[in-house]
């Protein structure tokens, strides 16, 4: 899992806002996120990062170590194109995402379609072979 500032959309759950293959630019410096932000998060249940919108945020005081309290933000997310919220995607017993632990970044900018090459390479083996073949051919016919 890399913390890259760019991510390619892999699912259609945010359509029509984001389609498969769109490239998103991420930022992850804010202390708290806001409702309406579109965030990228990971859960232990699934390997792929998920891009969904925040529908609820709660800034709460959590009990930390040695009777201290820690202020943290709890988030609930939902895909714009999904009927219900993301509770079924979270791990067993988890009701909220944690701002510090689970979030890879929030989406600030957007370029359509350019990332579709990534999807072709990872999901279509013939495309991968074609590219490797082309590279091999061009190496053979190279005169330098």
């Amino acid at each position: 899992m890399s913390n890259s500032p760019m991510v390619v959309v892999l699912s259609g759950s945010m359509e029509p806002a984001f389609q498969r293959g769109d490239i998103l630019f991420l930022w992850n410096r804010e202390q708290y996120l806001d409702v309406g932000d579109i965030i990228v998060y990971k859960t232990t249940v699934r390997d792929v990062p998920i891009v969904h919108r925040i529908v609820r945020e709660h800034i709460v005081e959590e009990k930390g170590k040695k009777r201290t309290t820690r202020k943290t933000q709890k988030l609930l997310t939902k895909g714009d194109n999904n009927q219900g919220d993301d509770l079924p995607l979270y791990r067993y017993g988890q009701n909220y995402l944690d701002r510090e632990k689970d979030i890879l970044g929030s989406v600030k900018g957007y370029v359509p379609k350019v990332g579709y090459v990534t999807i072709l390479i990872t999901e279509n083996q013939y495309f991968k072979y074609a590219i490797v073949g082309l590279l091999a051919l061009s190496a053979l016919f190279n005169q330098e």
């Binding site: 029509p16 309406g36 609820r56 709660h58 800034i59 202020k71």
Partner: peptide
């Protein structure tokens, strides 16, 4: 200092 913000309704 706790604070919450929740969505009741949304629309595209």
């Amino acid at each position: 200092e706790e604070h919450s913000k929740v969505i009741f309704w949304d629309h595209i």
